[in-house]
Design a binder for these strands. Structure first.
Length: 944
DNA sequence: AGGATCACG
DNA sequence: ACGTACGTGATCCTG
C-alpha cells in the first residue's frame, strides 16, 4: 500500500513569495479537512444506526467520512485538498496546561477499528495527509489557511465550532449539516449570525466560555449567550476588562476572579497560524482516485452506495472502468484488464428513433428471430391509469436499441401498436424489462397484453438482496458502472419541467433506448449471478416473474366499494366525534388539538396531573397502551381512547377511500409492491388494501363496504389457517407440533394444554396460549410476554420454559437459524429466498438481539409469502385453463379475495382451496398439512 | 422530513 | 444499565 504522506519539517524561514490578491472567484480552491473531527462526527451520526458490513464489522464512520469526501469532490471540485490529523505526541497546549483534554476518554473501539480503512481510503483517493508530531490538526489547518489564503479560496471542512476563528475573507468553513451528506458554507456573516460574534472575536468568546470538550474552563457562569452579549457591547475582551465597573456586580466579580487565567486560556483556545512548517501548494494538489486501490477497498467495505456514486462524482475517471469486473476480480487484478465500458450508456451506442410505418415494419422484421426482447414504455405519468403512451423502446442486443415514437411522429399510435401486437403478445417471446408490471398496465389500456414476463431486472435485484435499492439508475451504476440519464434530467425540474411530449424527440429517444438497453444488459449480469445461486433463479422464474402478470391483472381489476354506505357511516362517526370532542374539552378545561400528541400529553400530564408511563424520543407517550393504564384514573381517558379509534378509522378509511375511487372504472385500484419488504411479502399502497379494518365493530362496518361489482356477483375469501405456525412446525420438525396439526387440533388449545398441563382449557387459557404461539414466531422474550398477558415476568418465564421443554425441536431449530445466519450472513426460506442480516454479529447487544428476532421470524414469514405467491400463480393459471370468469382481486398475506358468479362460486372454492394446498406442498411443506378456510358473501365481511 | 400513532397480517 | 415480539403503510403534527 503506497501511502502518500507528506513529511513536513520545520523550515528555517517563514518568508515566502506571496502572490498579489486575486478576486476570489478566480482563485483555485484549497480544501482542508479536519480529519479526526469529521470521523467522530460520522461515527456518532451513523454508527448508532448500527451500520456494518455483512460480517458485522462496523463501517458507519468510514462510510460517513467517504460520503463527505465525495460531496466535497462533487460540489467544490477542489484544486488542492488535504486532510489534517492530530499526532499522538503531546502538544504545547499540554505543556501549558496539563489538564488539557484530560477529560477525553479513548476513542470507541468501533471507531478505532475503522481508522486503517480511512487511511487506506485517503491513499486511494490520493489525498495528502498532513500530520506532524507535536501539532494538532487545528493548528496545521490554521497555518495552512494563513499561508495559502492570499492565493487560494480556502475551505475548512469541520464540524468543530472552534475553527470559526479562522474565518476571514477567502477562508470559510464547510460544516456537516443536519441532513446527512450536506455541507453548510459558513462565512463571516454566518459565523457572526450563529455565534453572535465575528470570527475575529471568536477567541475572545471561547476564552470566556471555555471549551468543555477540551477540558478548558471558562469564566464560571458565563455561557455563550452572556459572552456574546458582552462582546457585542464592548467589542473585545480587553475592552470588557477596561469597563468592568459598568458590568453587573455578578459578572464583574466573575471576571475579576477569572483574570489571572485569562492569558493562559486565550493561548489554549487560540488556533495557531504561525507554525514553522514547510508547505507548498504543489504538494496539496488534488490528484484523482486510484481505482485499482479504491474499488477493491470499497468492495471489501461493502460501501455499495459509494461505488454507485463514483461515476457521478468522477465521470471522466470512470469512463473505462467496469465496476462489475472489479467486484469479481481480486483486489490485485488491475482494472485495465477489465472489459472497457462507457461512462454513459449512450456514448457510442447504437440508438435510434423510428417515426414512420416503413421504419417500424423494418424493425419488426428484424426482430423476428430474437430469442427475447427488452421493452420499456415512455408515458406521461407514473400513474398507469393516467398514463398516455409517448413511445416504446425495444432492445435485443446490448448497446443497441430503437425507440418507436408514438407521439410527435408520423406514426398513428393505434395502428403502430397493431403492427407490434404479434410481437408484444407472442407467448414464445419472453419480455425483459425493469418493473414490467408498469408496462403491462400501460399497454393494457391500449388493448395490448404484454406477455410473458421473461425477466424483470428489478425483481432479480430484489431476489438477490431484498434490502438493496432496485431502481434502474442505481442498478446501472452498481452493476454496469453507468451514469444514466434520469427522467428528471430529461424533463428538468420545478418550473422549467417539460411535459414529456415537449422533450426533444432525439433526447427522448436516447433516454428511452437507454432504459431498454440497460434492462437487457442487467439481465445478462443478473442471470450470471442467479446461475450461481440456483434456488434464487428458480424463485425468479417460478414465483416472482409469473406473479408480475397476476398482480397487474389484480390492480387492473380493482375492487368496488359501497360509497353511500361509507358516507352514511362518516356522518354518524362525525357526530360521535363532535360529542367526544366536547366532552374532552370540558374535562380538560380548554379546547386543544386532540390529534396532537404534544398538546394531548400537556393536557394529560400537566393539566390533569396524570402519571406518565412511557417516554418517546420527543416526550411522553400517549399511545393506546398508556391510555389504557390511565383509563381507571380519569374518566376523560375513555373518551380519548374512543376518539382515537373513531378518528383513525374515519380519516384513514371512511373518508379517504371514496375520494380515491377511480372515476373511469368506479373502483379502488391499489398497487401491489413486489420489491419492498425484507421478508418477501407483498405490500400494498395507494391505497393500502392490506390493512382494511376488521377487528373493531366500526372496522367491520368498513369491511362491509367492500362489495362485488354487481349485485348478482359474490366475493369469495380463502385464507390459510395458522400458516406461519405450520411452517414453524415444518422447519423444526418438532413431533409434538406436527402431531397436533395432523390431528387437525385447534393449535392454541393444544398449546394451552401443553403449557398449563391441563385438559380443561378455559377461553382465557387459550387466549394466553395464542399470545405465546405468536410470541414464538416473533422471537419471544419474557418481558414482552409478561406485558402482553399482563402477568408478572416470573410467570412469563415459567410459561416460556414449559413451552421450550415441550417443544424442544422448535427452539433448537430457531437457534440453528440464528447460527446459520451468523455464519453465512443471511437466513433463508424453504424455497431459498434470502435476507441478509449483518446485525447478527453486532457488538451492540440490543441491535444483535433485534437481529436475532428478525432472523428467526424471516424464514417463517418469508416461507408463508413464498407459499401464497405460488398459490396466486397456480390460481391464475388454473382459472385461465378452465376458462373461468372469476377474478382475483386482493391478497392480504394469508388471504386471497376473488370476485365470482353464481355458477362459478362452488367450483371456484374447490379450485382455490386445491391450488393453495398444492402451493404449500410445492414450497416445501411436506410433513405438516395445511388447511384453507373459504367463505362467500355479498361483501368482504360476510365472505369470512 | 421524521416522529408518533395505529390499521392489518 | 438498558430496552424488549416480526413485517408493512397512511395519517396527522411539528420543526
Amino acid at each position: 500500500m503506497s501511502r502518500k504522506q507528506l513529511d513536513f519539517f520545520h523550515s528555517g524561514s517563514a518568508e515566502r513569495a506571496v502572490a498579489p490578491p486575486k478576486p476570489v472567484a478566480e482563485k483555485p480552491k484549497l480544501i482542508l479537512i479536519d480529519g479526526m473531527a469529521m470521523l467522530y462526527r460520522a461515527f456518532f451520526a451513523l454508527q448508532r444506526a448500527g451500520m456494518t458490513s455483512r460480517d458485522g464489522k462496523p463501517t458507519g464512520a468510514v462510510y460517513g467520512f467517504t460520503s463527505a469526501l465525495l460531496k466535497i469532490f462533487e460540489t467544490y471540485k477542489p484544486d488542492y485538498l488535504a486532510a489534517a490529523f492530530d499526532s499522538r505526541e503531546k502538544t504545547f497546549r499540554h505543556h501549558l496546561y496539563p489538564l488539557y483534554k484530560a477529560n477525553r476518554s479513548a476513542p470507541p473501539e468501533d471507531l478505532i477499528s475503522q481508522l486503517d480503512a480511512v487511511f487506506e481510503l485517503l491513499a486511494a483517493f490520493d489525498i495528502p495527509l498532513i500530520k506532524i508530531p507535536g501539532f494538532e490538526a487545528d493548528d496545521l489547518i490554521g497555518t495552512a489557511a494563513r499561508i495559502f489564503q492570499p492565493e487560494c479560496a480556502v475551505f475548512i471542512v469541520t464540524p468543530d465550532k472552534d475553527l470559526a476563528q479562522l474565518v476571514q475573507d477567502g477562508v470559510s468553513i464547510l460544516r456537516p449539516g443536519k441532513n446527512q451528506n450536506e455541507l453548510e458554507l459558513l462565512g463571516r456573516s454566518e459565523i457572526a449570525e450563529q455565534f453572535g460574534v465575528p470570527p475575529e472575536r471568536f477567541t475572545d468568546l471561547l476564552t470566556l466560555t471555555g471549551d468543555t470538550s477540551d477540558n478548558i474552563p471558562g469564566a464560571k457562569g458565563i455561557g455563550p449567550k452572556t459572552a456574546a452579549t458582552l462582546l457585542g457591547k464592548y467589542d473585545s475582551l480587553q475592552n470588557i476588562y477596561l469597563h468592568l465597573g459598568d458590568l453587573s456586580p455578578k459578572n464583574r466579580l466573575t471576571l475579576e476572579e477569572f483574570q489571572p487565567q485569562l492569558d493562559l486560556i486565550k493561548q489554549l483556545v487560540t488556533i495557531r497560524t504561525d507554525l514553522q512548517i514547510d508547505l507548498t501548494l504543489k504538494e496539496l494538489a488534488c490528484g484523482s482516485p486510484d481505482l485499482t486501490l479504491l474499488l477493491p477497498l470499497l468492495n471489501k467495505l461493502e460501501l455499495k452506495t459509494v461505488i454507485g456514486r463514483l461515476p457521478v462524482v468522477f465521470p471522466k475517471l470512470m469512463e473505462h472502468a467496469s465496476l462489475e469486473a472489479s467486484m469479481h476480480d481480486g483486489p490485485d487484478s488491475p482494472l485495465a484488464a477489465a472489459e472497457p465500458e462507457l461512462r454513459s450508456p449512450r456514448t457510442g451506442a447504437d440508438y435510434g428513433v423510428i417515426t414512420t410505418e416503413e421504419g417500424l415494419k423494418a424493425l419488426i422484421n428484424s426482430l423476428q428471430d430474437a430469442p427475447r426482447i427488452a421493452v420499456d414504455t415512455e408515458t406521461t405519468s407514473l400513474n398507469t391509469f393516467e398514463a398516455e403512451l409517448a413511445g416504446i423502446s425495444i432492445s435485443t442486443e446490448a448497446r443497441k436499441a430503437r425507440f418507436i415514437a408514438l407521439a410527435n411522429s408520423s406514426l398513428n399510435p393505434q395502428s403502430a401498436l397493431e403492427l407490434l401486437r404479434p410481437l408484444l403478445e407472442n407467448p414464445e417471446l419472453p419480455k425483459t424489462g425493469q418493473n414490467l408490471k408498469y408496462d403491462i398496465l400501460v399497454l393494457k389500456k391500449y388493448g395490448i397484453d404484454l406477455t410473458p414476463v421473461g425477466f424483470d431486472t428489478m425483481l432479480a435485484s430484489y431476489v438477490l438482496d431484498p434490502e438493496e435499492k432496485h431502481n434502474l439508475d442505481d442498478l446501472a451504476a452498481r452493476h454496469l458502472g453507468y451514469k444514466t440519464t434520469t427522467f428528471e434530467e430529461l424533463t428538468g425540474t420545478g418550473k422549467a419541467k417539460l411535459h414529456i411530449f415537449d422533450v426533444e424527440p432525439e433526447q427522448l429517444s436516447d433516454y428511452a433506448c437507454q432504459d431498454a438497453d440497460l434492462a437487457l444488459q442487467l439481465e445478462e449480469i443478473f442471470r450470471k449471478k442467479l446461475e450461481g445461486e440456483k434456488e434464487l433463479l428458480w424463485l425468479c422464474e417460478h414465483i416472482e416473474f409469473p406473479l408480475v402478470s397476476v398482480l397487474a391483472a389484480m390492480e387492473h381489476a380493482g375492487i368496488c366499494i359501497d360509497t353511500p354506505h361509507l358516507e352514511k357511516t362518516s356522518e354518524a362517526v362525525g357526530k360521535e366525534l363532535e360529542l367526544l370532542t366536547e366532552k374532552i374539552y370540558a374535562a380538560s378545561g380548554a379546547p386543544f388539538n386532540i390529534d396532537s400528541p404534544k398538546q394531548l400529553s400537556n393536557i394529560l400530564f400537566n393539566v390533569l396531573g396524570l402519571p406518565t408511563k412511557k417516554s418517546t424520543k420527543t416526550g411522553f407517550s400517549t399511545n393506546v397502551e398508556v391510555l389504557e393504564e390511565l383509563a381507571e384514573l380519569h374518566p376523560v381517558v375513555a373518551s380519548l381512547l374512543e376518539y382515537r379509534t373513531l378518528q383513525k378509522l374515519k380519516t384513514t378509511y371512511i373518508d379517504a377511500l371514496p375520494k380515491i375511487v377511480n372515476p373511469l372504472t368506479g373502483r379502488l385500484h391499489t398497487s401491489f409492491n413486489q420489491f419492498i419488504t425484507a421478508t418477501g411479502r407483498l405490500s400494498s399502497s395507494n391505497p393500502n388494501l392490506q390493512n382494511i379494518p376488521i377487528r373493531s365493530p366500526l372496522g367491520k362496518e368498513i369491511r362491509r363496504a367492500f362489495i362485488p361489482s354487481s349485485p348478482d356477483k359474490w366475493l369469495l375469501s380463502a385464507d390459510y389457517s395458522q400458516i406461519e405456525l405450520r411452517i414453524a412446525a415444518e422447519i423444526s420438525g418438532d413431533p409434538q407440533l406436527i402431531e397436533a396439526f395432523r390431528n387437525r387440533e385447534d393449535i392454541h388449545t393444544a398449546t394451552a394444554r401443553v403449557i398449563f398441563g391441563s385438559d380443561e382449557i378455559t377461553p382465557d387459557m387459550r387466549r394466553k396460549a395464542k399470545e405465546v404461539n405468536f410470541g414464538v414466531l416473533y422471537g419471544i422474550m419474557p418481558f414482552g410476554l409478561s406485558k402482553r398477558l399482563n402477568i408478572p415476568r416470573s410467570e412469563a418465564i415459567a410459561i416460556i420454559d414449559t413451552y421450550k421443554a415441550k417443544y424442544p425441536g422448535l427452539f433448537l431449530a430457531l437457534q440453528e437459524i440464528i447460527e446459520t445466519g451468523k455464519k453465512d450472513g443471511y437466513v433463508s426460506t424453504l424455497l431459498g429466498r434470502r435476507r441478509y442480516i449483518a446485525d447478527l454479529n453486532s457488538r451492540n447487544s440490543n441491535i444483535q438481539k433485534a437481529a436475532e428476532r428478525a432472523a428467526m421470524n424471516t424464514p417463517i414469514q418469508g416461507t408463508a409469502a413464498d407459499i401464497i405467491k405460488c398459490a396466486m400463480n397456480l390460481c391464475s393459471e388454473r382459472l385461465r385453463k378452465n376458462s373461468m370468469r372469476s377474478v382475483m382481486l386482493l391478497q392480504v398475506h394469508d388471504e386471497l379475495l376473488f370476485e365470482t358468479t353464481d355458477e362459478e362460486k362452488e367450483p371456484l372454492a374447490d379450485l382455490i382451496e386445491e391450488a393453495m394446498i398444492d402451493a404449500a406442498i410445492i414450497c416445501g411443506l411436506k410433513n405438516v398439512p395445511v388447511e384453507v378456510d373459504t367463505g362467500i358473501g355479498k361483501n368482504w365481511l360476510d365472505a369470512h
